[in-house]
Simulated scan of single mutants.
Amino acid sequence: MAQLFTGLPLRLIAAGVLLINGLFPVLWLFLTSLKSELELTRTPITWLPDRPTIANYVDAFSDQPLHIFLMNSFAVATLSTISTLLVSTFAAYAIARLQLRFRALILSVIIAVSTFPLVTLLVPLFETMRALNLLNTYTALVLPYTVLSLPVCTLVLVSFFDGIPRDLENAAMVDGCTRLGALFRVVVPLAGPGVFTAAILAFVNAWDEFLLALSFNASPMLRTLPVGITLYQGEFAFPWTVISAALVVGIVPLAILIVIFQERVVSGLTAGGMKG
């Protein structure tokens, strides 16, 4: 009991640090989006807006086609998430179920590939997309995002597939299912938390990515949200309040996604960590 109370203040401090680190930037961003330019530059600084205004949100949609940026990001993130889940499901199932001689080596290579800096892949990917005539298309982003998310999603799914008894698949195949049918009718539903976790990771990765989106799509109507927000900056002006409003709008879809699926994601991360 004494050890419990001794560790309790440390736990509270750690939780407080994590809470401040996670919520304070978002809160400050939201408060900034409700201020005027004059109030933002006032000294001493004011924490709460004197006269909250939604004019910055109106300007965010009127100054740039923010709705188009949102639609482009949603389309690219959704398509890349679907393709990532499809490929990583087959890859994870093969690693988990087939008697591979070099399973440990394969997993090590997957982990190593996931650590490659994105900037080192920029030129080869750009040349590949140009050779395939895919620049300025959704495909130019969907394919690289799928490849970049595959290592992490595959590792997550492998940990879940390993925990599902083979007898369930064998029973399904005895009843007439093919191996592919057993995979999607038995294994994938039982690994639901892991699938949701992999989907969230792939979606967030595609939603937030900036470098490839800037390099591969030069058409203004194909800009994704991270790239589109940079267009608010002028040569001699940096409208922090409008940019803050645009950033808040970009955060809302992810926040809604996390709130809806938070239980599955948390259970997936926890179960995956315990099984790994």
Rank of each mutant, 00 (worst) to 15 (best):
A77I: 01
L10Y: 15
L168D: 07
S219G: 02
S83H: 00
A60V: 06
E127P: 00
L148H: 05
Q3W: 12
N72P: 03
L231M: 15
V248S: 04
V249H: 05
I82S: 00
F160N: 03
L121S: 12
A237G: 11
Q262M: 08
L150Q: 08
P189V: 14
F236I: 10
K275R: 15
N217L: 11
D175N: 12
I164W: 01
G163S: 13
L225H: 04
L70R: 03
G272E: 05
R179V: 08
V142T: 11
E209I: 10
T146R: 06
P65K: 07
R264W: 04
A198L: 08
D175T: 12
F102C: 03
F236V: 09
P226V: 09
L29D: 02
V265P: 03
L225S: 06
L150A: 13
F24T: 08
L225W: 02
T230H: 05
A92S: 06
I95W: 02
F90E: 01
V252C: 03
T6S: 12
V242K: 12
S33F: 02
L121M: 14
L257H: 04
A14T: 09
S73H: 01
V123M: 10
S267A: 14
A96N: 04
T224Q: 13
L231H: 12
A213S: 11
A199N: 02
G7Q: 13
A140N: 01
I20S: 10
A206E: 12
I200K: 01
V123D: 06
R97Q: 03
A15W: 09
F61G: 08
S88L: 10
E127S: 10
G16I: 03
P52G: 07
S215D: 02
L257E: 03
T115V: 13
C177V: 08
V259A: 15
L38M: 11
